[in-house]
Computed example of a mutant assay.
Amino acid sequence: MRTWKRHGRGSRLRICSSLDRNEVELLLSMVGSLTELLSERAASAPTDELAELTGITTGHSTAPADLTLGRLLPDFHRPDQERELGADVVNGDLNSALRSINEPRIIDAKLSAAQILVESLPDGGGEIALTEEQALAWLTALNDVRLALGAMLGISEDTPDRYPDDHPHAAHLDVYHWLTVMQELLVEALM
């Protein structure tokens, strides 16, 4: 991947770069896995009679048990964020209600961003020219893929910049860093 560059102004502004075939295939694979994970979560939401009558979509009221989904769909409040609220209130009713109401829209937004990324990828590699709206969707999708990969790898402040070549996660960490650089360069181009 080359750096992102701005071309044009106003409604003709495009954020441009290029990807080789392997980069496109890697992004398609990772975004496909992310989409599948989020779609399964949405499809497994319990049905609610009132929601069916009103047309208001509701989702799960409990946090995902899966570590990766938990990173993508975290609780809205944690006990360490607001000392005034008791941990039982934050972890119970408030998070359940907020999750049930908001999770379907959050999943839809993540899936929409992923779809925009997939649709704007050049077949077999090549040039990319994104509108500002598409570039923002790319940022969302790249961030979600990074979060998912980071959760699977257990990325923390203590994770080294590089693993030895024979480490089972060496290639995955390289991909994580590649996604990070791609995202940073895209942010810079948008600024």
Rank of each mutant, 00 (worst) to 15 (best):
108 D>Q: 14
175 V>S: 04
188 E>L: 15
108 D>L: 04
20 D>Y: 01
166 D>N: 06
50 L>T: 14
56 I>T: 10
14 R>F: 01
44 S>N: 11
54 T>C: 10
84 E>C: 11
96 S>P: 09
153 L>P: 00
141 A>C: 06
57 T>M: 08
112 S>N: 13
170 A>R: 02
188 E>P: 06
46 P>Q: 02
118 V>D: 03
31 V>E: 13
66 D>R: 01
7 H>W: 12
50 L>Y: 13
46 P>G: 03
180 T>G: 07
49 E>I: 12
158 D>S: 09
101 I>M: 12
17 S>W: 00
140 T>G: 13
117 L>R: 07
63 A>S: 12
180 T>S: 08
55 G>C: 09
105 R>W: 03
125 G>W: 05
109 A>T: 14
48 D>N: 14
141 A>M: 02
88 D>K: 15
117 L>D: 03
88 D>R: 15
152 M>R: 14
169 H>P: 06
70 G>V: 00
52 E>S: 07
143 N>G: 15
83 R>I: 10
135 A>N: 01
34 L>C: 08
121 L>M: 00
186 L>W: 01
172 H>M: 06
5 K>Y: 00
191 M>N: 07
75 D>R: 12
186 L>Q: 00
16 C>F: 02
89 V>P: 12
97 A>T: 15
25 E>A: 12
37 L>H: 06
189 A>G: 09
45 A>Q: 05
121 L>K: 00
24 V>Y: 05
171 A>K: 15
111 L>K: 14
104 P>T: 10
57 T>E: 13
105 R>P: 00
147 L>M: 12
143 N>M: 14
175 V>Q: 10
117 L>A: 00
182 M>G: 11
38 L>K: 15
140 T>Q: 13
167 H>L: 00
62 T>I: 09
68 T>Y: 03
172 H>Q: 12
105 R>V: 11
62 T>V: 05
30 M>H: 08
179 L>G: 00
91 N>P: 01
118 V>T: 10
22 N>L: 09
114 A>Q: 13
1 M>Y: 04
72 L>H: 09
106 I>L: 15
71 R>S: 05
106 I>E: 09
95 N>Q: 09
77 H>R: 15
115 Q>H: 11
96 S>W: 05
127 E>W: 02
80 D>K: 02
115 Q>N: 11
127 E>P: 01
90 V>R: 08
166 D>L: 06
56 I>L: 09
58 T>L: 14
177 H>R: 04
118 V>H: 02
57 T>W: 07
9 R>C: 14
102 N>G: 13
93 D>M: 03
177 H>W: 11
165 D>C: 07
20 D>A: 08
51 A>S: 15
153 L>F: 07
125 G>S: 03
154 G>C: 13
14 R>L: 01
53 L>E: 15
173 L>W: 05
34 L>N: 08
56 I>D: 03
188 E>D: 04
13 L>T: 12
188 E>T: 11
111 L>H: 11
45 A>R: 03
189 A>I: 03
184 E>Q: 10
117 L>F: 01
161 D>S: 11
169 H>R: 07
159 T>E: 03
